[in-house]
Amino acid sequence: MVKVVTDWFIPVRISGDKQGDLFGKHLVTWTPTITIWDGEGREHYRFTGFLTPEDLCARIILDGAKAEMALKNYDLAIKCLNDVTKKYKGTCAVPEAIFYLGVAQYLSSHNPKPLREGLDSLRKEFPQSEWTLRAKPYELINL
């Protein structure tokens, strides 16, 4: 957890009792809320609520990977999404990571097959997941 945060992020803590004005400015209505920003000051993702240490780590890596994907750092995004699917099995982040792994691979290569492979993996491992539903249109992609 510490290594993930310090290697990849500049960490900031905003305390409600000392900097409560920033809660309103950034539309934070409940805590804990963790937000991920880029170096241009743009917020990419946020999540609210308590997670186990392993789920928290997986969620931070997943959302960091999605931010890197938006910044077109596809190789890093793919590496991190693979890490979530392999090293954080059993965490809540895995189905979404499988979905976005296909997306990142497609954006990187313009080959649509990873989208379909992601759907197949989701159907096999997480048939009831919302992310399996979201990936359903990719069944039209031939392998």
Partner: peptide
């Protein structure tokens, strides 16, 4: 041990220099 800053603006500037992302934890103590 994580060394937490308390300024989003400073963190964003540092993130740009070091090509990193910023993680902001909004919390209520106690």
């Amino acid at each position: 041990m994580i060394s937490w800053g308390d300024s989003i603006e400073k963190a964003v500037k540092k993130a740009k220099e070091e090509k990193k992302l910023v993680l902001v934890d909004f919390f209520n103590p106690g």
